[in-house]
Design a protein around this nucleic acid. Structure first.
Length: 296
DNA sequence: AACGGCAGCAACCGCCAACTC
DNA sequence: CGAGTTGGCGGTTGCTGCCGT
């Protein structure tokens, strides 16, 4: 099953691309278009595997690639999208014209990941939010080279096989007592705009408290749904800077229509008895927590 | 000037889902 | 229906240049 890796193919160039190779690839694609990556190198006269050609084109040679530093606006968008989507770099990149998934991934791992880590260490006591760094990451870090080991300890949420597990979702679930305590100041009192009454209601919500009957593992197959739901719930009580609608709209392209997989995701979202308008404590009822204009 | 450590980034690798036959 | 193929994705590696000593 599958196919042999590029490395097993005979006499293929590896490593950095030369200007000549770039020119050959660019001119071939301009003449014949993208696709058919497997046969492309032979036809273009390149001693590279198709996969390498595809990557070079998509991440570097494509004419619509935006060069230069990530702007402040782009950075904010990346952070917000990462909050919603986790390490779905291609989806995030799809919302940033001219930026590639590789570029965003690198930017996150080198810059934003550190910021996020620093932020987390300030906001949360040791041993709590660190659960976000799951065991596979620890293993990967330990097994890598020493230089990697020091720099790879960033707050990266693994999103593939592990993304949908309760282990990853766990810190995002509203564990009412503990998480609400995070919102309290050092003296154990809530600070503006949060107050006791606000979270007294929260903790009574059968869909959200520690005894919730909704097991995240039930959503394993629809993991992205669960993750996004959990993430927005997380935003609801941890981040007062965005409105629910604006977060959801981030996932819409310019024409305002959801693309797959978002269409199905939010269809499912609205069917969730814990989150829809008819629930005892509707999601919308928490929206004021996000929108500073609507804070009491 | 030489060296080592570190950060940033391009490229590679392995896995997986979708597609084809 | 199942095996093989392809394209795509996310994680990791390693090269390169910068900076401090």
């Amino acid at each position: 099953m599958g196919r042999s890796p590029c490395s097993s193919m005979e006499e293929l160039n590896k490593g950095a691309w030369t200007a000549l190779e770039d020119e050959l690839l660019t001119s071939y694609i301009q003449a014949h278009g993208e696709g058919k990556w497997r046969n492309l190198p032979k036809r273009a006269g390149l001693k590279r595997c198709g996969k390498s050609c595809r990557l070079r084109w998509l991440n570097y040679l494509r004419p619509d690639i935006k060069r230069g530093n990530i702007s402040h606006d782009e950075e904010e968008l990346i952070i917000r999208l990462h909050n919603l989507l986790g390490n779905r770099w291609s989806l995030i990149a799809g919302r940033l014209p001219g930026r590639t998934d590789n570029e965003i991934k690198n930017y996150w791992n080198t810059t934003l990941g550190k910021k996020a880590k620093a932020q987390t260490s300030i906001e949360a006591p040791p041993g709590k939010s660190t659960k976000k760094v799951i065991s596979t990451e620890t293993r990967a870090t330990e097994s890598s080279s020493s230089s990697q080991a020091t720099k790879a300890r960033t707050e990266v949420i693994r999103t593939r096989a592990t993304m949908c597990s309760s282990q990853v979702i766990f810190p995002l679930q509203p564990h009412a007592t503990h998480d609400v305590d995070v919102l309290k100041a050092g003296g154990g009192e809530f600070e503006e705009p949060f107050d006791e009454a606000m979270f007294e209601d929260w903790t009574r919500n059968p869909c959200l408290n520690n005894n919730a009957t909704t097991d995240i593992d039930e959503h394993r197959d629809g993991g992205l749904n669960s993750t996004v739901k959990a993430r927005v719930l997380d935003l609801l009580y941890s981040d007062g800077s965005h409105s629910l609608n604006s977060e959801v709209n981030l996932l819409k392209p310019s024409d305002g229509e959801f693309e797959k997989p978002f269409e199905a995701m939010f269809k499912d979202w609205t069917a969730d008895p814990c989150l829809n308008d008819n629930s005892t404590v509707g999601l919308e009822s928490f929206a004021f927590l996000l929108d500073p204009d609507e804070w009491p």
